[in-house]
């Protein structure tokens, strides 16, 4: 564990709390892609199967439980309490285009051709693109509530902080995880456009609006 990773995980945790807070305070899940949230459940469940057979640390254990539990809770809220505020008509990204390629790539690139390792690789690749339905929705509506942009910013910061974490681990532990690094760089890259608008508009007190 190093500071970058810890802060990254904290940002990840914060992003989820911001999202849940947004839904409860605005009593709405408007602007949130159900598809992205469903993909995150798939990501966490396939990645954290090792909860059943490997102990890493207390921190690791509780974070995994939190990520699985909170992502399921978000889906539950979106399908029950706040269902009327959800608009499937604008959440139209075809997730088959993500699930298919991620499956194929996971079967090719993995550290061991075993079910759990393939699922681990799959979860890494899927996480890297799981935000696309959300960004696509944002692109379609052209604007977002400020709190939603804070959620996305926290997610982006989490990903960005994993990069110095890998650099640090390379120099201090000699650890290199090519699958996580490649997927992580792709994932972080997807946030660049969003961050540009977030920094130049939202942080200046303006509404998040994409140029027409």
């Amino acid at each position: 564990m190093n500071l970058f990773r810890f802060l990254g995980d904290t940002a990840h945790l914060a992003s989820i709390l911001v999202l849940i807070h947004k839904m409860h305070t605005t009593k709405s899940c408007r602007g949130i892609s159900f598809k992205t949230q469903a993909l995150y459940v798939a990501v966490f469940v396939t990645r954290y199967l090792d909860l059943f057979y490997r102990w890493v640390s207390l921190y690791n254990f509780f974070m995994k439980l939190f990520f699985i539990g909170s992502s399921c809770y978000i889906l539950f809220l979106m399908k029950t309490k706040f269902r009327p505020t959800q608009d499937p008509a604008i959440d139209t990204f075809r997730i088959e285009y993500l699930l298919g390629p991620c499956t194929v790539i996971a079967l090719i690139f993995n550290y061991k051709f075993s079910p759990t390792e393939i699922l681990w690789s799959f979860s890494i690749f899927l996480e890297s693109v799981a935000i696309l339905p959300q960004l696509f929705l944002l692109q379609r509506t052209g604007e977002a509530e400020t709190i939603t942009t804070h959620y996305l910013a926290a997610l982006g910061i989490y990903r960005a902080l994993y990069i110095p974490n890998w650099i640090y681990r390379y120099f201090t532990e000699g650890v290199v995880d090519p699958i996580a690094i490649t997927a992580g760089l792709v994932q972080t890259g997807l946030y660049i456009d969003f961050f540009y608008v977030y920094v130049t508009k939202v942080l200046q007190g303006q509404k998040f609006e994409l140029p027409a």
Binding site: R47, N165, V176, D177, P178
Partner: peptide
């Protein structure tokens, strides 16, 4: 070294 055993990152 490639970490082939045990993924300790979240």
């Amino acid at each position: 070294e490639t970490s082939t055993e045990g993924h300790d990152e979240l």
